[in-house]
Write a protein that binds this DNA or RNA. Sequence first.
RNA 1: GGACAGGUGGCUGAGUGGUUUAAGGCACUCGACUCGAAAUCGAGCGUACCCUUUAAAGGUACCGUGGGUUCGACUCCCACCCUGUCCGCCA
Length: 424
Amino acid sequence: MLDIRKIRENPDFYREHLARRNSGDEKLIAQVLALDEKRRKLLQESEALKSERNRTSKEIGAIKAKGGDIAEVSARMKAVGEQITRLDQDLAGIETEQTDLLLRIPNANHDSVPVGKTAEDNRIERIIGKPAEFSFKPKPHWEIGAQLGLIDLEAATKISGSGFIVFKGQGARLERALISYLLDLHTGQHGYTEISPPFMVRGECMIGTTQFPKFIDQQYAVTEEPPLYLVPTAEVPVTNLHREEILPADKLPIRYAAYTPCFRREAGAAGVGTRGLTRVHQFDKVELVHIVKPEESYATLETLVGHAERVLKELGLHYRVVSLCTGDIGFGAAKCYDIEVWAPGVGAWLEVSSCSNFEDFQARRMNLRYKNSEGKNIFCHTLNGSGLALPRLFIALLETYQQADGHILLPEPLQPYLGGLKKL
RNA sequence: GGACAGGUGGCUGAGUGGUUUAAGGCACUCGACUCGAAAUCGAGCGUACCCUUUAAAGGUACCGUGGGUUCGACUCCCACCCUGUCCGCCA
């Protein structure tokens, strides 16, 4: 959520930044400012009347103590009270409207974010490794996986519909191995504290991390009373762990790593780019979350990307890091790097991680602050990135390490997690 | 799910309709005393918003949450939430 006072002070700055997102949201600035003006006018009227009532009520107390007559002044204050009630009702309506609008305005982007309209305009920061070479035509993962009995997409469709995966045998074991490997790497080498959160959360959490209100139709609701939602990413429960808190400065920075399944409705139609495991309603992911002081957040973003890249380097996978342009970047992010792994079987770059700095955009929504050295309460900056998303990592492993005889070689770091197994 | 108890500032703890402007204490900050410290003494010390703005001052709201009664609610009424303890159910 943007700071209404900053919008008030510098509306052009936000109009320009939002216009670069080409989502048309810059028009909301004028709307929110109009509401804000109305709101403050009503607030001032209401507060002036309350001030009068407070003063007069004390006088009434004094008059009564002396045995005086309060009928006339009391009646007058009753009228004032009714007027206050009316004003406050109007005010509450406008405040709700304003907050709702503010929750729908996306974040302004950092100056280093490339300006552009589509994914074509994203800036490629670096390409690491080389594409795997084959003496045969590499197969897509759904063929390899079916042949080796690692996955069964038809069974998944039968029990849950399209967009679900059944892992079987060594496939299921590989999935489990990857979760352990990723958590061990990040907690052991990168200093993260492991969190195992609930997979269902309240609506407030979804507001905090920007899924609500705008993207509510992409979420699964589980119960109606109380409303609970399946997490679309561990970002939601983990970042909200400290919602409504004022953290002591020495608790920062906070680094959490969490495995959860992720549930997404992904309204998009099936077709190219959605076959196999690339785009599913439920997938596993290890997520990295940082809560930091504002002055540290951009250095932290680079560190975070490095932690995610480390996985691909260790596993010997070919990947690139892309800086998302203003037209492609997510709603809440000020800056975002995507990490894309090369999948030789399908011949495409697949997004396996999205590392974002939200600055104080999420922190404002969840009222997450820390007390600085001067004793002031300052909104924290929050960041998160996948470390990594499992199905696409699974795809890259199958397609990159496939052999002419149909088997898959396992990269060395994974072998201990599969009981020393070297190939599938 | 049932019964009982409770929810007030960073902590503790008073407060049953009007000098509550939330007492007192602890902690913290500054000052005095001291070579220094402790003790003692003095002062300060919540959050958010509004107005003004170089600043200061001022206003409003906040005692679990939301309603209600009243000129006026920490205080009275209603509903709900949470915590603790016990009971029931349960992998």
